[in-house]
C-alpha cells in the first residue's frame, strides 16, 4: 500500500484517559496515514468513542502524547483540532434536524458577506456550495433549505462527511457511521468513505461490524477494555480472527458453537 510510504498525519502514543475512578483508556497507541482507512473496532464500552474524542480535542488525555504531522500537539478544544484538520462525525449527534442542510453544513463557519459596516451570512454561496458538494457525494438534494430531519440516516452521515471534506480535513473520524443504517444506506456510506480516502484524506472508521470494516479498511486496530489488542494490515487477518479479537476470544468461540457459526 502506497500510504505506508507516507509519515502518519496523527500519531497517538500510549494514551490514557481516566474519568475519576473509571479508566476508559489504558495506554492506546494508534496512527493514521494519508489516504488510508484505519478501522477502530471493539465492543460496547471498549473506549472507542473516548479515544477518538481525545484525538478530536474534546477530552484531554490523562497521560500520553499526540503528534500531529510529527509535532507535539496539545488541543485545548474541538475547535483547535478542527483548525488543524481533524474533523469528526460523531455517533450520536452529527446534525441538527430542525435546521436546513445549508445551515448545518456551514454551522460554525458561516460564509460572510459585507454590506457597508454590516456582516451578513452569504446564503447564495452557502447554498450553491452545499448543493455542489452533496452532488459530488452522490446525493441530489431537493433544495438546500430542506431540513436535515427530512433526510435519511445515511444522507445525514453524508452531509456531515461532505462538510468535513469541504473544510479541508486531513483526518476524518467517523464514529459508527453505519450502526443505525440499512443495507443500501450502509453501502452508500461505505462508498463515500472510499471516495474520500481516494482524495488523500486519512479516515478513522469506528465500527462494531467486522464486515463493514473489511469492506473498506486498510488497517484494523481492536480495542478491548481500554487497551489495544494490536493492529493488523488488510490481508493479514481473517474475518474470523478479527471477530474473535473483538469479543475477547474464548466467549466468542463458545457462543459461535452454540449458534452454529452465524454471528
Amino acid at each position: 500500500m502506497s500510504s505506508y510510504d507516507h509519515a502518519p498525519i496523527v500519531e497517538m502514543r500510549d494514551i490514557e484517559k481516566h474519568f475519576g475512578p473509571v479508566i476508559a483508556l489504558n495506554g492506546v497507541s494508534f496512527d493514521i496515514r494519508p489516504g488510508e482507512c484505519h478501522c477502530l473496532l471493539g465492543d460496547n464500552g471498549a473506549g472507542k468513542s473516548t479515544f477518538i474524542k481525545t484525538m478530536a480535542g474534546v477530552h484531554k488525555p490523562t497521560r500520553g502524547e499526540i503528534l500531529f504531522e510529527g509535532k507535539h500537539m496539545d488541543f485545548s478544544s474541538p475547535r483547535d483540532a478542527m483548525e488543524a484538520g481533524i474533523a469528526t462525525v460523531y455517533q450520536d449527534l452529527a446534525m441538527i434536524p430542525l435546521m436546513s442542510v445549508t445551515r448545518n453544513f456551514w454551522m460554525g463557519r458561516e460564509p460572510i458577506k459585507r454590506v457597508g459596516p454590516f456582516k451578513f451570512m452569504d446564503f447564495k454561496t452557502a447554498n450553491d456550495v452545499t448543493m455542489h458538494e452533496m452532488r459530488k457525494m452522490g446525493i441530489n438534494l431537493r433544495s438546500p433549505d430542506q431540513a436535515v430531519g427530512t433526510l435519511s440516516g445515511g444522507e445525514r452521515q453524508t452531509v456531515a462527511i461532505a462538510r468535513a471534506v469541504y473544510f479541508g480535513a486531513k483526518v476524518l473520524i467517523l464514529d459508527e457511521p453505519t450502526s443505525a443504517l440499512g443495507v443500501r444506506q450502509t453501502a452508500n456510506v461505505l462508498s463515500t468513505i472510499d471516495k474520500v480516502r481516494k482524495t488523500g484524506i486519512g479516515i478513522v472508521f469506528i465500527t462494531h461490524n467486522v464486515r463493514h470494516a473489511l469492506a473498506v479498511g486498510d488497517r484494523f486496530t481492536v480495542l478491548n477494555r481500554g487497551k489495544t489488542l494490536g493492529t493488523a494490515q488488510r490481508g493479514q487477518i481473517t474475518p474470523e480472527e478479527l471477530q474473535d479479537l473483538m469479543a475477547g476470544g474464548q466467549e466468542m468461540v463458545a457462543l459461535e458453537g452454540s449458534l452454529g457459526g452465524t454471528v
Binding site: 478542527m82 450520536d92 449527534l93 452529527a94 434536524p97 454551522m107
Partner: peptide, 14 residues
C-alpha cells in the same frame, strides 16, 4: 438556532 437545536452538536463544530 444551533445553540437551541442541539447545544452539544453545535459545540462540537465550534
Amino acid at each position: 438556532f444551533a445553540a437551541g437545536g442541539d447545544a452539544q452538536a453545535a459545540r462540537y463544530v465550534g
